Amino acid sequence: MRIIKAAVLVAAGAMLSWTPARADTVPEFRGNDTGGIIAYELAHRVDARQLAVDHCASYGKVAKFLAVDAQYGGYVSFACRWVPYGASNQPLRTLY
Rank of each mutant, 00 (worst) to 15 (best):
I3V: 15
I3W: 10
I4K: 12
I4C: 05
I4A: 08
K5A: 14
A6Q: 11
A7Y: 12
A7L: 11
A7P: 04
L9E: 07
V10P: 04
V10T: 13
A11V: 09
A11Y: 11
A11I: 07
A12N: 12
A12S: 15
A12P: 10
A14V: 10
A14L: 14
M15D: 06
M15N: 11
M15I: 12
T19L: 11
T19N: 05
P20K: 10
P20H: 09
P20E: 12
R22M: 12
R22A: 10
D24T: 06
T25W: 14
T25M: 13
T25K: 07
V26G: 04
V26P: 03
V26S: 07
V26W: 14
P27L: 03
E28P: 09
E28L: 13
F29S: 06
F29Q: 06
R30G: 06
R30S: 06
G31I: 03
N32A: 03
D33V: 07
D33I: 07
T34N: 05
T34Y: 04
T34A: 05
G35Y: 00
G35H: 00
G35K: 00
I37Q: 07
I37V: 12
I38W: 01
Y40G: 09
Y40C: 08
Y40K: 15
E41K: 14
L42M: 10
L42I: 07
A43K: 06
A43Y: 06
A43V: 05
H44P: 04
R45Y: 05
R45E: 13
R45L: 11
R45I: 09
R45H: 06
V46Y: 11
D47T: 04
A48F: 03
A48T: 01
R49N: 01
Q50G: 04
L51H: 03
L51I: 03
L51T: 01
L51A: 01
A52K: 00
V53C: 02
V53D: 02
V53P: 00
D54Y: 02
D54R: 04
H55A: 03
H55E: 02
H55L: 04
C56V: 03
S58K: 10
Y59F: 09
G60N: 06
G60M: 09
G60R: 08
K61W: 00
V62A: 01
A63R: 00
A63W: 00
F65Q: 00
F65W: 01
F65A: 00
F65H: 00
L66F: 07
L66C: 09
A67S: 14
A67C: 05
D69W: 10
D69I: 08
D69H: 10
D69S: 09
D69K: 14
A70W: 12
Y72K: 14
Y72W: 15
G73K: 06
G73E: 05
G74P: 13
Y75H: 13
Y75K: 09
Y75L: 13
V76W: 00
V76I: 12
V76A: 02
S77E: 10
S77L: 08
F78I: 02
F78W: 03
F78E: 00
F78P: 01
A79K: 02
A79C: 03
C80D: 02
R81T: 04
W82P: 03
V83H: 05
P84H: 07
Y85E: 13
G86P: 05
G86W: 11
A87R: 10
S88F: 09
N89R: 08
Q90F: 09
Q90P: 05
Q90L: 13
P91H: 03
P91L: 01
L92Y: 04
L92V: 15
T94R: 08
Y96D: 14
